[in-house]
């Protein structure tokens, strides 16, 4: 990138006016759909609006105090954290292994890669629906395959059995997004300067040492962005869970996004939802800023 200081004198006043003209519609729309909701949510969260009552008087921190004692909220955060901390490493590890598998010459490599893209571009909701079909205890093929491996007929209630709902959601999630990791990591690995790995080879470094000391630092910036994108998506996971379990059985797989949806649009706890929305934004901001700093991505 050119240093801004060198460019600065070039930008004339008329350029600036033209630029503002170009920028104005986008910024206005983003303010409308980005900033307005935040401000509005903030205001509402200090009031007492529910399905039955519109009380717009200032209620202080009442809603925020309620957050602390809302067990269902903390459980939904825990559920989100469980999915996050299992799916993200799994997608990364599988994606990396697949990228390594397809890195070198292989007959039909391009065709394989083109096919492996497909799960990632399907609508997440449809992905959930597909796994609903696959996991059906009677008419789905998964139980049939498990039956072959097990030796006897398997009747696993994937979307109902408390022990199986998380594996079910994780299967769908990992299936859909491992190819995303794979594609990005494959591109990153392909871009590693070959002379660096060759120099390491001549210097006597084995596969692991070369990977750790040469390849990993080289692909890290790209890998960090991929982790950030996936991490954010996982933190607000909604569609797959909605399609597969709807948060059930009971509230066992209710993620923070599902809980917010239920509160806001099923129970119309308007003000309290506003408070939760702010909690979520706060958590995400802290996580993202922390991640960006830790991963050395700030540019």
């Amino acid at each position: 990138m050119r240093p801004a200081a060198l460019d600065a004198p070039r930008i004339r006043a008329s350029d600036r006016r033209f630029g503002l003209l170009l920028l104005a519609p986008s910024v206005l729309l983003l303010l409308l759909v980005g900033l307005f909701p935040l401000v509005y949510t903030l205001v509402v969260s200090f009031q007492q609006i529910t399905l039955f009552e519109v009380d717009t008087s200032f209620a202080g921190l009442a809603n925020y105090r309620m957050l602390l004692s809302d067990e269902r909220l903390w459980e939904s955060l825990l559920h989100t954290a469980i999915l996050f901390s299992i799916a993200l490493p799994l997608e990364l590890a599988l994606g990396l292994a697949m990228a390594q598998l397809f890195l070198e010459r292989l007959p039909g490599r391009q065709i394989f890669i083109a096919l492996l893209v497909l799960p990632t571009v399907i609508a997440p909701l449809v992905a959930g629906a597909v796994w609903r079909l696959l996991l059906d205890h009677r008419y789905g093929p998964v139980n049939q395959i498990v039956g072959w491996l097990w030796g006897e007929e398997a009747v696993l209630l994937w979307t109902v059995n408390p022990l199986l709902v998380y594996p079910a959601i994780l299967m769908a999630e990992v299936w859909q997004w491992t190819p995303f990791m794979f594609l990005i990591l494959l591109a990153a690995l392909t871009n590693v300067d070959r002379s660096l790995t060759e120099a390491a080879e001549i210097d006597g470094a084995g596969f692991w040492l070369t990977f750790r000391k040469v390849v990993l630092p080289a692909i890290w910036p790209v890998m960090a962005v991929a982790l950030l994108i996936r991490g954010l998506d996982l933190a607000r996971i909604f569609d797959v869970v909605y399609a597969l379990t709807g948060g059930g059985p009971g509230t066992m797989t209710e993620t923070i996004s599902i809980y917010t949806y239920v509160l806001g649009f099923r129970q119309f706890e308007t003000s309290y939802t506003g408070a939760i929305a702010f909690l979520v934004i706060a958590i995400l901001t802290v996580l993202v800023v922390g991640a960006v700093k830790r991963m050395g991505l700030a540019r």
Binding site: A4, D7, A8, I11, R16, G19, L20, L23, S26, L30, V33, G34, F36, P37, L38, Y40, T41, V44, L232, A235, R236, F238, S257, T260, Y261, G264, F265, T273, G274, A277, V280, I281, L284, T285, V288
Partner: peptide, 25 residues
């Protein structure tokens, strides 16, 4: 370079907000 890097970062950060949270207001 209107708004410098800050405006650009603000714009991309809009994508970070969870849809469920934005959609409510």
């Amino acid at each position: 370079r209107i708004g410098g890097e800050n405006l650009a970062v603000w714009i991309i950060s809009q994508r970070m907000l969870p849809p469920v949270v934005i959609v409510f207001p």
